[in-house]
Nucleic acid binder design. Structure first.
Lengths: 341, 341
DNA sequence: AGCAGATATGTAAGCGCTTGCATTTTGCAT
DNA sequence: ATGCAAAATGCAAGCGCTTACATATCTGCT
């Protein structure tokens, strides 16, 4: 017995089973269109040869890949992990494979990845957030690739979306902070450019401040990439002001965790000396102590529903309606009243 | 101007540029084999049409995919994140794309994923750890798919590997724990089956215990999947023994963080009342307080070197030599002398 | 027994690209 | 001008699969 020079093909199976390649193909893809006896014969050949269909050939011939692409801003932290996990589980159940790539929060890389996934024959695409060059939506439409947006809900956008209202969610949290008595508020935001979530969360804080009649000079924003150390650095920067804030709202949990750690390094107690809040409610939020007061996002639900929605768009050629999900605030001990209050 | 019914093809470009498809193909893949003037003409057509090569067709024709597959046990926690990130960055530099999938620590899922990646034409594969059915190595060899193993170094194994000596690393850490005065040691291990890293780490602790003449009844092991909550539960279980351990070594940082949090919930101070150590030195280890005393693994270096090695194996058909990397212990405050010592 | 209609299988035309080989063009020394 | 090797390009054969469409083989009726 010599090793095969290359993988067995449909032809090999067909020959061994004494049928045509068409029949073998049908056995694999439409078993009910082939009579039981032949089916068994073919199956035996498949097993004997250890045959696995060549994916590229299948994609070419069928013009379907049963592959869904997703482009997320980063894999470095866990922000998207849980949602994506649920997304992929649901996809798997429906017979689809997920291909993930990351854009490092860079629009041009995202565009490159979109083209790459299109070239790979992705049947549908999941993108994060709405902010991107409108040309991209045109491209996707011209290539007939159903696209769904997650992590940010917006009706009547260029593409359907499933997510939550970032602005309102953050506003709610900010109002709670203000209600606790804080008047000097700082914010550590992610980079706004090309990131509607970051932008909307800032606006949410502003909404709350306006609604509660907070003086604008009591509100400073530092913008920095979503990384733990950056959260720490931004925290230090905010606290170095002549009149430092008593509460700091962070654009997400990663920044907040960095802020909490830095506060502790600086000898500040959270929340006695300074309050800090997060956004996302990822695992990290509960590991740091005190645990973060943060906005809980239903990641798993979002991922699962996104999968269902996108598969439907792909299979029925329908436009997709999108859906808004609710968030809620979880209290974790990092938010308290202002000092000497 | 009507929307194209489907993506432009090589043919379209060729026609527009007034050359043959062969020339267009060469422009894209071997630009130096085509004269500058034609190259420009072709490039213009490519741009005008917004042409992107069809990946499946290219793979079929070229029998190369410039894709490397990696199968990791889990994406849920960050254990593999940093190493994989470095792996993919290096791969990208070399012109390869990384396809990642996870096996959920299940051998049969891993096998399925291996076949899937093979079917997708992966030029090479990165696998974690050595423990798996030997048939798989045969399959990979018969399909001529270069395979490299990471996260665990072992010379003369069925496949080359790049990683560290899990057993010795853990032994070193355990010796330090014993040197601190602990005689009753507990261990929270990951599931051993199909996971040589987990197995070797246990053996490392045993090595140290034997070398230091520790009584075997002073050493209890709890085996549980790598998840934070499990670490907590296992910790509670260990501490519920009539004579609880004074130090608990964990199979990785995730388990250790769970243990630390649970200890605090139980009103135990770390390390005054109980010492806890981790393994991996992931970000989490430094966020929890006290920070973990743990084994630092050079994840980025490992990922980068794995990429270089694997690409070489793919491009030169060489067997690959593998490499052992050093680990070191980082002290984080979670390890102290035993109580009343 | 014989036939319509369903059911099962085979035939063969691509899908979009790469690449060995054949052919044409070019550059340059004579 | 002429010839020749080298460089540039074209031709066409696949790569392994799916799927109309054509053909062959069954059903169950009358």
């Amino acid at each position: 017995m010599s090793k095969p020079r290359s993988a067995p093909t449909l032809d090999d199976v067909a020959k061994m089973a004494g049928v045509s390649t068409a029949t073998v193909s049908r056995c694999l893809n439409n078993p009910d269109r082939v009579v039981a006896t032949t089916r068994e014969r073919v199956q035996a050949a498949v097993d004997a040869l250890g045959y696995t269909p060549n994916f590229a050939a299948r994609v070419m011939a069928a013009k379907r890949s049963f592959t869904i692409g997703a482009i997320i801003p980063t894999m470095e932290n866990a922000i998207f992990a849980r949602g994506l996990q649920a997304f992929q589980e649901e996809l798997h159940l429906r017979g689809y494979t997920l291909l993930v790539s990351s854009s490092a929060y860079k629009p041009d890389i995202e565009e490159e990845q979109i083209r790459k996934l299109a070239a790979r024959g992705a049947d549908g695409l999941l993108l994060i957030g709405h902010d991107r060059d409108p040309e991209i939506y045109k491209y996707l439409e011209s290539r007939r690739i159903p696209t769904l947006i997650a992590w940010s809900y917006r009706p009547n956008a260029l593409a359907p979306s499933i997510g939550f209202d970032n602005r309102k969610a953050m506003r709610n949290l900010a109002e709670r902070v203000i209600a606790a008595g804080h008047t000097r508020i700082g914010m550590i935001s992610g980079i706004r450019e090309g990131n509607d979530r970051a932008r909307l969360r800032i606006e949410g804080v502003q909404d709350a401040a306006n609604a509660r009649g907070l003086s604008p000079d009591g509100f400073t924003i530092v913008e920095t990439p979503y990384e733990i150390e950056n959260g720490g650095a931004a925290f230090a920067e905010l606290m170095a002001q002549p009149v430092p804030p008593t509460a700091i709202l962070c654009g997400n949990d990663v920044l907040a965790v960095g802020a909490v750690r830095r506060a502790q390094d600086m000898g500040l107690r959270v929340p006695q000396d300074v309050s800090i809040t997060g956004f996302d409610d990822i695992e990290l939020a509960r590991i740091v102590s005190p645990a973060l007061t943060t906005v809980h996002v239903p990641h798993r639900e979002m991922g699962r529903k996104a999968a269902l929605q996108l598969v439907e768009m792909v299979e029925t050629q329908s436009p997709g309606q999108g859906e808004q999900l609710a968030t809620n605030i979880v209290s974790g001990g990092s938010l308290g009243p202002p000092p000497q209050g």
